[in-house]
């Protein structure tokens, strides 16, 4: 059996639908009649309903807005309708405002069309891909854990914790701060071109609290892109180095 295919324009929002109607009616935006556009809009929604298309709430909000504009015209000017609105979407209160919003929307719709052309043009251009192994270039929007996965880093941390747990603990005054530890880590890796072993950052006397603080400092430095962590291979040593 042949599948029945129906091609319908898909509207990205109520403004897109409004534009479709305005263009179909070949009316100048500045000349639109609220009554006219409202009935066309409602008719379009009805057709969508008949086709069992799900109508997003925003389309109904626009319908209500249009009806409000239309009814306002019918009321004597002196009558002020008390409004208590808590909508997130800005309210359209007059025909002029509707025109303004339509114009603004059209601008960005046109920009989007331009971007679509750029997208198509760029699709025809191919760039080399080595499979993500460039060492020198770090895309500046990426946090780099060069060759180290987060689980690997956590595993190293956990190993450290379980090892230290068994040692006698000395209760020290709580004067640890992540800030200080960040400075300490930066100092430890300064000038070390080949990096510093992850374990060396934790002094043998360090208690659990200090280890945790140091680890948080390490994560913070990675986030701030001050350092990178590098692993030579699976189960290899974790090296911490300054980011150039």
């Amino acid at each position: 059996m042949v599948d029945l295919q129906v091609n319908l324009p898909v509207f990205s929002g109520p403004f897109a639908l409004l534009f479709h109607l305005i263009e179909k009616a070949e009316v100048d935006i500045y000349e639109i009649s609220v009554a006219e556009i409202t009935s066309q809009y409602l008719q379009a929604l009805r057709e969508m309903q008949e086709l069992n298309l799900e109508i997003a709430a925003e389309f109904l909000v626009m319908a209500a807005t249009l009806l409000k504009l239309k009814s306002k015209k019918l009321l004597p000017e002196t009558v002020e309708v008390a409004e208590t609105e808590e909508e997130e979407m800005p309210v359209i209160d007059s025909r002029e405002e509707l025109v303004q919003r339509l114009l603004e929307y059209r601008y960005f719709r046109d920009v989007a069309a331009e971007l679509r052309r750029c997208e198509a043009a760029q699709k025809r251009v191919y760039i080399r891909s080595l499979g993500g192994k460039a060492l020198l270039v770090n895309p500046d929007e990426e946090i780099t854990l060069a060759g180290v996965t987060l689980p690997a880093l956590l595993e190293a941390f956990q190993r450290l914790l379980t090892e230290r747990e068994r040692q006698p603990q000395e209760i020290a005054p709580d004067d640890l701060s992540v800030q200080d530890k960040m400075q300490a880590v930066l100092k430890a890796v300064r000038g070390k071109k080949d990096g510093v072993d992850f374990r060396e950052l934790f002094s043998p006397q360090a208690g659990i609290a200090e280890i945790i603080t140091t680890f948080i400092a390490l994560l913070e430095l990675i986030r701030l892109r001050k350092i990178v962590v590098w692993q030579s291979g699976p189960f290899g040593r974790l090296l911490v180095m300054r980011k150039s």
Binding site: V10, S12, G13, A16, F108, R109, V111, A112, L115, R116, E119, K123
Partner: peptide
């Protein structure tokens, strides 16, 4: 390819 909604938002 990006959807129309995504493109408008990006614009």
């Amino acid at each position: 390819t990006l959807s129309q909604a995504a493109l408008e938002t990006l614009a």
